[in-house]
Simulated scan of single mutants.
Amino acid sequence: MLRPRWTLHAEALFWRTLMGAGMTLHRMAPPVPPVPTFTRTIPSTLSPTRGAIPIVFYTPPSYATRNPAHKYPLLINFHGGGFTLGRATDDCRWAAAVVEQVGAVVASVDYRLAPEHPFPTAVEDGADAILHLLSNAGELGLDARRVGVSGFSAGGNMAFTTILRYEAALRAGARERCGQLRVVVAWYPSTDFTSSRELRRGTNTRPDKELPRLFTELFDASYLYPPKDVSMDDPYLSPGVAGGELLGVLPDEVLLWTCEWDELAAEGERFRVRLGEVGKRVGGRVVGGTAHAWDKSPNPVAGDAVRDEVYKEACGELRRVFGL
């Protein structure tokens, strides 16, 4: 039986408030991450439901006085939260690492959330952000030939699906190709909704570390509402079961980090194999001894040595891909 949309909305607002408090604590731990340099809001064009899409930018110190001839690599990022919670600033520590260690600009997208905006609005907003950023790369001082897409959890799903939607928009003639997507960086992504939550939970070797059911039930009911209208094997929802020809449009380089104690790890590792089969170079690894969203600890007094190590590893790979 479908839950009334107003109950989903009320529950989402409650957890958004609590998650916001938790992310405030997350940002308080030393070293304190930077605040966004600036924000740009763009109109949605691909979704039939029109709206605004804020994009927050994190830039290197030299960006404010940049030489017009110098172009910065770009990483477009999508936050997590089950397509229902979260903000673009949640990944501020990842953005800080990329800015400092890669010298790239990070553009983090505040895509519209469910249940107010169910599937596929988030994917359409993400594709709109890619289209806008590549089309306006020159104005923004960005190198459109060195662009990557990253995301965490639901955002890790979007790191793949927004590219599929972006490529579809190009094929439909909505835009001209204005740049090159070089790499996907996906952190503990959801990739296969054809597997039920029960099957996913059954793959976790540490059930005590799994995502609470109250969250996953909220996420699925919100994003997939009404369920009868959503096919679970839709490639914009489940890239892990997409056809090889469709996956071929993804960048040649994929960096994928999964968590040992995560119900999404098994599908992520299946997708790693699948991507290799269609000719992608797949890096990253399983991060041992970690649960889902392990890098978003709300501890306000302590850093995270594992997070810093793995982020450094990812940034080294980005430098290689971007030829730095």
Rank of each mutant, 00 (worst) to 15 (best):
Q180S: 15
L264K: 03
D304F: 15
S196W: 00
G240F: 08
G248V: 05
G279I: 08
H292E: 08
G244L: 02
T203V: 13
M232H: 03
P207V: 12
E309I: 09
V230I: 15
R177M: 02
R206S: 10
G279M: 10
H292Q: 11
P226K: 05
E260F: 02
K209I: 00
R177K: 15
V286G: 03
L211I: 15
E260M: 09
A265S: 13
L247E: 09
G248S: 14
E217F: 00
G283R: 00
E263D: 07
V306L: 15
P226N: 03
V301P: 00
G283C: 01
A186S: 14
P207A: 05
A242F: 05
S222D: 02
V306A: 06
E198M: 02
F219Q: 12
G240D: 13
P235F: 10
G202L: 12
A293T: 15
R270W: 13
A302T: 08
V183D: 01
L250S: 04
F215D: 02
L181Q: 12
L275D: 01
A186G: 09
D295T: 13
E176R: 13
W261Q: 13
A186W: 01
C178M: 10
V287T: 01
L275V: 14
C178A: 14
R197D: 12
V241D: 02
W294L: 03
E198D: 08
S196P: 09
L211D: 04
L199C: 10
D234W: 04
L218H: 02
V273Q: 14
